[in-house]
Design a protein around this nucleic acid. Structure first.
Lengths: 237, 237
DNA sequence: GACTGCATTTTGTGATCACATTTTCATCGA
DNA sequence: TCGATGAAAATGTGATCACAAAATGCAGTC
């Protein structure tokens, strides 16, 4: 034990006891997911290994693996020159995401209906109240986090091991762009179908839940369509 | 030029000129994809970083990132103790994969129909001939490779940036299990709907192509269902 | 003979170093 | 004033080391 070469363990991430999981890599990955889903990472934003590492107080190593994992799901993009950035949105890409969402999420919602009930409806209503509050307050970041919670509380109930990850991948892809649209057109214009979804959950009406989710996707993504008439890379942070 | 500390670049992977891309990581990832899609990696098989690295003549570093990327798409599984293995199949998981495939792949095929024609039909027919040959010869590995080529030659024509990666992820998940079933029941019992698909491509009949793909999925996966009546972990290498 | 105990090996994780490439930016010249 | 040029900084990639935890193998015991 020479006592000089022990460059192990950051040890002071901010939660030394590490309550939930272990592995700094998972922590970084979760941080990235958060940043993307809440729109803190805007399309086109450059992500550097050392920069992220310093920000999260870890070595570049766990960041490399986390970034690579996100890139595998197209949540991040590795350009030809090797640089990493949040993917930019294009009209055809957005159209495809909408199509994929409409194929998968209603299916997931329908499957979840049987495993949900009045208790869950109450929880969803509570989230929806906070969503309305964040919309009134113009807090887009909180809105996006809560909207994600709302949808995935439903989807998770389906107990899916395959469909759910696919849908998560889709959300990671469109969320950053979603955020830029809210920043441009504001959050006041938002119309969702959460109320219908809650009612469908309460009455265990699978068909109605399916339709509510589909309608919600259609409305939200229509709004997004108005956000990219031009190929404006103006919001590249 | 001290000439002593230059532990850079393996340099002799097997293709020094490196034709297509660069980056050892991508090479490893491609090797993993190949191994999974052709069924050389069977469900439950343990994958070790150092082992794979030695096998591919690279350092463990690129392997770590490649494995992590595959795990992000659930093509590999990182267990609670950290060990890496090819995921095992369960009846509900297989059912979900079938559902997801039936949702996405017919859609992709339908979209691809407009961008395919007689020339492509001829190419597909050529592949299908080789598929029949590999089935007669009992060469399951070649069959799987060609079957993948057949389907993705169609899907790729859709020019999809979102749906296609999702479908690729699904194939990586069920392919290893598919292989074990062929090993058990043989390849002679295989019935596909490639002939109908080729005809639909030739006549640019989107609806027919969609239906041919859907039928092909249903048949193939029904066969797989017969492969796991019990929860037999007997085929763990 | 089967089971428990410990020593050895294996394996994933994190950190650091070395290097090629690219980007950035300040300086110089027309 | 603007563009080219060069040095300096930044960045991704690959390799190696160190370490903890787990798996493995081997003995010794009941």
């Amino acid at each position: 034990m020479a006592g000089q070469s022990r460059p192990q363990q950051a040890k002071d991430l901010q939660d030394p006891p590490a309550p939930g999981r272990h592995s700094l890599r998972d922590t970084v990955e979760e941080a990235l997911r958060e940043a993307l889903l809440t729109g803190r990472f805007v399309p086109g934003r450059a992500v550097t290994l050392r920069g992220l590492a310093q920000e999260l107080k870890v070595s570049p190593m766990p960041v490399r693996e986390a970034v690579r994992a996100m890139a595998a799901g197209h949540a991040l993009e590795i350009r030809a020159n090797g640089r990493i950035q949040v993917p930019t949105m294009t009209p055809p890409r957005l159209a495809e995401i909408v199509k994929a969402r409409l194929l998968l999420e209603p299916e997931l919602a329908q499957a979840a209906a049987a495993r949900l009930g009045p208790r869950d409806a109450a929880r969803l209503a509570a989230i929806d109240d906070r969503i309305d509050a964040s919309l009134d307050g113009g807090d887009a970041e909180t809105y996006m986090r809560l909207n994600h919670s709302f949808h995935f509380m439903i989807y998770r109930a389906a107990g899916s091991q395959v469909l759910l990850p696919l849908v998560e991948s889709l959300w990671l892809q469109f969320a950053p762009f979603m955020r830029t649209v809210y920043g441009r057109v504001g959050t006041f214009a938002l119309v969702d179908h959460h109320k219908e979804a809650i009612e469908a959950v309460r009455t265990r009406d699978a068909a109605a839940l399916r339709e509510a989710v589909a309608a919600d996707i259609r409305c939200g993504m229509d709004l997004l369509d108005t956000g990219l008439p031009d190929a404006g890379p103006s919001v590249a942070e």
